[in-house]
C-alpha cells in the first residue's frame, strides 16, 4: 500500500487513504449485507435476511440491534395472520452510510489496483 504511487510529489498534498474513512459499524460483512439487502428491497423481512446471510436468528438479531441503535435501520414488528413478522427498513442515515461504504470500498480497490500497476508493484520476482 505504501509504494511510490502513494507518495505525494513536491507541492502535492496527500489525500487521506480510503481505508481511514471506513466505518467499523458498516464495514463488516453481515452488517454490510443487511444494509445492501434493505436498500435494494426497500423493506425486508427478518426471515429473508436470515436465509440469505446464513445466520442464526440470535446472531442476526444482534447485528440488527447494533444497526438499529446506530440509527441505520428501523425495525418494525407486525403480524401476517397469526404469524409474527419483523420488517427492516433502511433509514436515511443508513442509506448515506451504505453509499459512503460502497464508495470507499471502490476507492480502496482502485488504490490497490493503481499501486499494483505501478513501477515497483506487481510480482516482485520479475
Amino acid at each position: 500500500m505504501n509504494g511510490p504511487a502513494d507518495t505525494p510529489g513536491p507541492g502535492e498534498t496527500e489525500s487521506p487513504h480510503p481505508a481511514t474513512g471506513l466505518d467499523d459499524m458498516v464495514h463488516q460483512r453481515v452488517r454490510l449485507g443487511i444494509l445492501t439487502i434493505a436498500h435494494e428491497a426497500r423493506r425486508v423481512e427478518f426471515g429473508y435476511l436470515r436465509n440469505q446471510l446464513e445466520l442464526t436468528a440470535g446472531n442476526l438479531s444482534q447485528h440488527l440491534a447494533v444497526l438499529e441503535t446506530a440509527g441505520l435501520v428501523a425495525v418494525e414488528k407486525g403480524y401476517a395472520g397469526r404469524r409474527g413478522r419483523t420488517w427492516i427498513t433502511l433509514t436515511a442515515a443508513g442509506n448515506t452510510a451504505l453509499a459512503e461504504e460502497i464508495g470507499r470500498l471502490k476507492q480502496l480497490i482502485a488504490r490497490v489496483d493503481t499501486t499494483e500497476a505501478g513501477p515497483s508493484g506487481g510480482d516482485p520476482q520479475r
Binding site: Q28, L32, G33, I37, E40, Q52, I102, L105, I109
Partner: peptide
C-alpha cells in the same frame, strides 16, 4: 473484510433481491 470480496458479496446480494 477484503474490499473486493465485500463489494462482490454486496453486488450478489443486491442481484438476488
Amino acid at each position: 473484510g477484503d474490499p473486493r470480496r465485500l463489494l462482490a458479496d454486496a453486488r450478489d446480494l443486491a442481484r438476488r433481491v
